[in-house]
């Protein structure tokens, strides 16, 4: 693969969801630029809009973009369907991966690799590739024969997400709370998988997290703090260290840059 740099640009993104009381705005003008090879962390309290941002990038139909733009190398991402975004090089590792009963992991992985790469991978090299990626994530080979996410433990689900990222080689990967629900061992393994993808320098990573714990394994160059639907603070790794000590209080309560009253608990 040529190492041309790809750029995901998010400009003034406003996103609403439909509620019983009518549309409700969750993102209120997000600006963010992620390039391949870079690692960004987005941190923020519950309800700040972190997950909404990740789903909006992936194109989940529940979220309506009311203003702003998302482009990948200048191409309008918002005009693309969910599957076309993935084929364009955007990947979302989900916080709560969905069970798909009866569809085996191996069949699913091959179907998605075929779709994203535009041709079916050659069987012999594909089997090796999957095997090596699974070993790196300490996954038992029998895993491939199970139904997608069916009866997976929390750690297995997250390893499976990172396995997909490794195989699909996206330009931009959004990791939505990939660290949540992992014990120390699983966090180490999952972080190792993310680090391996990052080390290749062909993927830009947007790491969304509530906690700083995963940042001990994966060092972002850029840290963004999100509150009430906007990026309210930005900095380098040192910002994560500050958050580790002081938490999010000053962004939520202090009447800070962007925490209007009533912007509270959006999950």
């Amino acid at each position: 693969m040529t190492a041309a740099v790809s750029t995901l640009e998010i400009r003034n993104l406003h996103v609403s969801v439909e509620t019983e009381e009518g549309p409700r705005e969750i993102l209120r003008g997000v600006d963010l630029t992620v390039r391949t090879g870079e690692t960004h962390a987005i941190m923020g309290p519950n309800g700040s809009g972190k997950s909404t941002l990740s789903y909006s990038i992936a194109g989940h139909p529940k979220y309506t973009v009311t203003d702003g733009s998302i482009t990948l190398d200048g191409e309008d991402v918002l005009a693309l369907g969910v599957d076309a975004r993935a084929r364009a090089g955007i990947f979302l590792a989900m916080q709560y991966p969905v069970e798909i009963p009866g569809v085996s992991v191996s069949n699913f992985l091959r179907s998605s690799a075929t779709a994203v790469r535009g041709e079916a991978p050659k069987l012999r090299t594909w089997v090796k590739e999957v095997k090596a990626s699974m070993e790196a994530l300490e996954m038992d080979p029998s895993f491939a024969e199970r139904g997608v996410n069916e009866g997976f433990s929390g750690g297995e689900k997250k390893r499976h997400e990172i396995l997909q990222m490794a195989l699909l080689k996206p330009k931009i990967a959004v990791l939505d709370e990939t660290d949540s629900g992992l014990d120390v061992d699983a966090l180490r393994i999952v972080s190792g998988g993310i680090e391996a993808v990052r080390a290749k320098g062909e993927t830009g990573i947007l790491l969304i997290t509530h906690y700083t714990r995963i940042l001990r394994y994966i060092k972002p160059e850029f840290v963004h703090v999100m509150a009430a639907g906007r990026i309210v603070d930005e900095g380098g790794p040192e910002l994560a260290a500050v958050l580790e000590d002081s938490g999010y209080d000053r962004y939520v309560k202090g009447g800070g840059a962007a925490a209007p009253a009533g912007a509270g608990a959006v999950s």
Binding site: D83, P101, G102, V103, F108, S111, A115, G147
Partner: peptide, 20 residues
Amino acid sequence: FYLQSRGIPPAEARRLVVHG
């Protein structure tokens, strides 16, 4: 959504779900 977010087109995603 999960299947499509992996690049699988909608019709193919439906086929996979029914197959499963």
